[in-house]
Write a protein that binds this DNA or RNA. Structure first.
Length: 918
DNA sequence: AACTTCACG
DNA sequence: GACGTACGTGAAGTTG
């Protein structure tokens, strides 16, 4: 069946203009909108042979300023500012582009493009054709009354149907004109009825059926502004209706058959693309069939040749090294990668460095291969010290950009060789800032996604298990293939990702938040924090004793031995053998024995298992503390530095938070007295102290700002206790109980609340929980608006944003599984708040070093970040001077980009250990 | 490797 | 009318 695509060219070019950066072609002409337009047309025409693809296509344009609508109403479209100066010359180019595709360009004096589209739609339907309107103009949505008509919004890459009309305007396409007549349209200056917006308009039309019935019913409506306006402005509404109604009987300038699509012609299109220098599109022309599918693409990126592993050079003499260095200098940028003997950057030895200058132009410089076995022959390679001495000036050259993938690792390794890499770009961070939530950001995955290339697997080079080699034991040929490929791929990714940053509006978050943090984190990780093994080992043996005693007591109660640490065995003992009621089995058939469940049993004074369960809870706590902290941390102390060096991941948390591994220093116990003792093992060097600075209630403050909740803002401005204030608002009195409940509700709001979730936490019924939620929304208007707006935007665009423009994608928001969808919705509600908080502390971290240095405080070292807390080690004598600087940098970290409407509170503590500083 | 639990913000 | 839950992490232990 024929399928006609009608492209609303005029509306498209305006949107393309505003969405794309101001590109110019080699002739200096502005072509941003033309590029977007050309790429879209191509995509459409290219779908010719696909199911649902076009068989007929036309581009419809507005011809003149004056139409019948101006005769009806002289103010129609009168408020439109003139087209931007650099857009005007692009209009004729659109016609060129259309002609280059051999597509008809249809325009007619006295008619708007919308009227022509309506008329063609009607004609095509009469022939039984399918019609797709390529536009997102809401007026055109009126045409979707017939099931054979849909719309395609290429800007958002979204198909729209009648349901989208219902979602957006509350009525189907057949009633859309009536609603538009009532609400008006500020863009086209259609007046509508004053005081009537989309909600009221939809309500009225749903109630009365059509515009005339609404107007007729007006005198009987309840007295008020709405009734008066409907009566007084009835004619305005009727006029508006005429203005928004599409003319569908315009004589067709070209017959339908003339719109048949022929496919993409080579010569004229090539000429057009060459004239404008649209290289990406040109390269596609030669290989339309086998071009990789590209989800995101910024203009000006050329296709790369496939990786040629055998073309990489192994650099083993100084002349060759100097050659690579010279060309890097000349070019101004180079991709680098380091190979080491292990995975821990603070301990592993440098084994080699690779560099890439262009696709397939890459080398590997072995520096520490062989020599682990005294009988093995060492391969010929450069002297490490000599090579490092030559590389250092390049890696520190302010005129040469160093590009790495997870460059933090290389910075730490090279930092130990006395090199401070700068300036730099990091492709793992770029990928994260562009695509968080869509996929992982490891090099192998990105190479597969963006380059259709599968990298040599590290495991294939070094082996696995007990036969695993370290990289220095790999022979040079294989090492070169692997290492040089990494640099090559990094370079290719950089060329692919870098242009997308500006194109997709994440330059600010990349440049002002995440990129600077790479060097800051490298420094923090290299520094590490001193851990007193004596304190830990004392705690370990205390815990061991208590654990053994508890174990004996527990076994005495049951009368037989079992593995207390096995949830399966424990569940069987409690619920089957001891007969405790109310055991709940999960989907794997095991009773749940988590802390909630055990506390529920313990709360029942008559339960036969009460004594046992209390002991198990203690046993669990102590086992956790011993194995995860007091034992493990001792083993993590670096013997060379006597300190513990965590590794932070910039891409670990979808929201933009950092995460910490090996060991995780972001979950050191603090909530119980027993656990808190572990923090006393994190100490300062003699003559120094630990300073801990944390943001107070930062997420609630940000919620108050972002959702614009007056009561919360005032409370924070006055320095009130926010949970007490909430308790007063919700329950009318403040005591321990109501304050605790209020605190729970405050957090629940940040996490995307559900009545069941809240009910479980507060031990009330879901109905009661719902009543509290309603009251919260009533008392703090803004919150529910924030939730609705955030979800709507997330569903429309596929991602949420923070105040600083950080995106988190939520592809599962459209999942068909309601649970999955609900989970994504809660995550999407939380992401802007958690993410903004992450942005703010990251900005503070990036500015902290320079601010302290400016004050002459070179000895103050930033050691740890725990989401809303920064931990420092500094000479005791520097505390007085450093304190106000740290406070100021943290409190003002959002500025100048964002002026928050709430103050950011910072609390600081100082002591000989982390525990004492709290 | 999956599952469960629990440490943190 | 069913779904069976707060958001974001990482590590250790048991089990298969």
């Amino acid at each position: 069946m024929p399928h006609l695509y009608l492209v609303d060219g005029s509306s498209y070019i305006f949107r393309a203009y505003h969405r794309l950066p101001p590109l110019t072609n080699k002739h200096g002409e502005p072509v941003g909108a033309v590029y977007g337009y050309t790429a879209m047309l191509w995509k459409l025409v290219d779908a010719l042979h696909k199911a649902d693809g076009p068989t007929h296509m036309a581009v419809i344009l507005d011809k003149s300023e004056h139409t019948f609508r101006n005769d009806l109403y002289d103010q129609y479209k009168a408020h439109r500012p003139p087209a931007p100066e650099d857009l005007v010359p692009q209009f004729p180019m659109i016609r060129d582009a259309t002609r280059a595709f051999s597509l008809p360009c249809i325009e007619e004096l006295g008619w708007e493009a919308d009227d022509l589209i309506a008329s063609y739609t009607k004609a095509a339907l009469a022939q039984g054709w399918q019609v797709t309107i390529v536009s997102s103009d809401k007026d055109l949505m009126q045409l979707m009354t017939d099931p054979s008509v849909d719309m395609l919004d290429t800007m958002n890459n979204r198909r729209m149907g009648p349901d989208d009309t219902r979602e957006k305007f509350g009525v189907g396409p057949e009633k859309l004109g009536e609603v538009l007549a009532l609400m008006g349209d500020s863009v086209d200056n259609v007046p509508g009825v004053p005081g009537v917006g989309p909600k009221t308009a939809a309500k009225l039309i749903l109630e009365h059926g059509d515009l005339e019935s609404v107007l007729a019913a007006a005198p009987e409506m309840k007295k008020g502004k709405l009734r008066d306006n409907l009566i007084e402005h009835a004619d305005l509404a009727r006029l508006s209706h005429k203005l928004v109604t599409l003319a569908c009987d315009v004589p067709l300038p070209e017959p339908l058959e003339a719109l048949e699509l022929q496919g993409i012609p080579d010569a004229p299109l090539r000429a057009f693309l060459e004239h404008h220098g649209f290289k990406t599109l040109l390269s596609r022309l030669s290989s339309v069939a086998d071009a990789p599918v590209e989800t995101h693409e910024a203009p000006g990126v050329e296709e790369d040749p496939p990786c040629n592993h055998d073309g990489y050079e192994t650099v083993t003499d100084l002349d060759a090294l100097d050659r690579w260095i010279t060309v890097s200098r000349h070019q101004g940028w180079v991709a680098i990668d380091t190979e080491t003997s292990g995975l821990d950057a603070t301990q592993a030895d440098l084994v080699g460095v690779s560099m890439a200058l262009a696709p397939n132009l890459a080398c590997y410089i072995p520096l520490g291969h062989g020599g682990t076995d005294m009988f093995a022959e060492k391969p010929v390679q450069l002297d490490r010290a000599e090579a490092i001495a030559r590389l250092k000036p390049l890696l520190e050259d302010p005129a040469v950009l160093k590009i790495g993938h997870n460059l933090k690792y290389d910075m730490i390794v090279l930092g130990r060789a006395g090199i401070r890499v700068a300036p730099y770009d990091d492709t793992i961070v770029m990928s994260f800032d562009l695509d968080a939530g869509l996929h992982g950001h490891g090099m192998d995955e990105l190479a597969a996604t963006h380059l259709a290339h599968s990298c040599i697997a590290y495991k294939d080079v070094v082996g696995t298990g007990k036969n695993q080699l370290h990289f220095g034991q790999v022979d040079l040929k294989a090492a070169t293939r692997y290492a040089a490929e990494d640099a090559d791929v990094t370079l290719r990714l950089w060329r692919r990702l870098k242009p997308r940053l500006a194109y997709e509006s994440v330059t600010r978050v990349y440049e002002s938040v995440d990129r600077p943090l790479v060097a800051v984190l490298a420094e923090m990780e290299s520094t590490g924090i001193k851990v007193d093994a004596g304190v830990l080992s004392k705690l370990s043996s205390d815990f061991a004793q208590q654990i053994a005693a508890l174990e004996e007591e527990i076994h005495a109660i049951t009368g037989f031995k079992f593995t207390i640490g096995s949830p399966k065995q424990l569940g069987d003992v409690l619920f089957d053998k001891m007969g405790i009621k109310g055991g709940r089995k999960g989907k794997s058939g095991v009773y749940s024995t988590d802390v909630n469940e055990l506390e529920r049993i313990a709360a029942d004074k008559d339960s036969p298992g009460r004594e046992m369960v209390l002991k198990v809870l203690d046993w669990r706590q102590l086992s956790k503390l011993k194995s995860t902290y007091t034992d493990a941390l001792q083993a993590q102390i670096n013997p060379q530095t006597g300190r513990v060096h965590t590794s932070y991941s910039l891409t670990g948390a979808q929201t933009g938070r950092l995460s910490s591994t090996d060991p995780n220093l972001q979950n050191i116990p603090v909530r119980t007295e027993t656990g808190r003792q572990i923090r006393d093992a994190f100490v300062a060097e003699p003559g120094n102290v630990i300073l801990s600075a944390d943001y107070s209630q930062i997420e609630l403050r940000l919620a108050a700002h972002i959702a614009d909740v007056p009561a919360l803002r005032t409370a924070f401005a006055n320095g009130d206790d926010i949970h007490s204030m909430t308790a007063m608002e919700l329950f009318g009195e403040v005591n321990r109980d109501t304050r605790g409940r209020a605190k729970t509700i405050n957090f629940a709001i940040l996490y995307g609340i559900s009545r069941w979730g809240l009910a479980g936490r507060l031990d009330v019924t879901p109905d009661e929980a719902q009543a509290m939620i309603n009251r919260y929304f009533e008392r703090f208007p803004g919150i529910n608006r924030y939730i609705a707006d955030t979800l709507r935007e997330a569903k429309e665009r596929g991602y949420t944003t923070t105040l600083f423009g950080r995106k988190t994608h939520f592809p599962r928001l459209k999942a068909s599984n309601p649970n999955e969808r609900a989970g994504s919705e809660r995550a999407a509600i939380n992401a802007p708040i958690q993410g903004t908080s992450a942005d703010i502390i990251k900005r503070a971290m990036a500015r902290m070093g320079p601010a302290l240095r400016e004050a002459g405080l070179e000895k103050v070292r930033m050691l740890l970040q725990v989401h809303d807390e920064l931990v420092f080690e500094l000479p005791e004598g520097d505390v007085a001077a450093a304190r106000p600087i740290i406070e100021r940098v943290m409190a003002t970290a959002a500025e100048p980009a964002i002026q928050l409407t709430v103050p950011l509170g910072v609390e600081i503590g100082v002591g000989p250990s982390w525990g004492a500083a709290h």
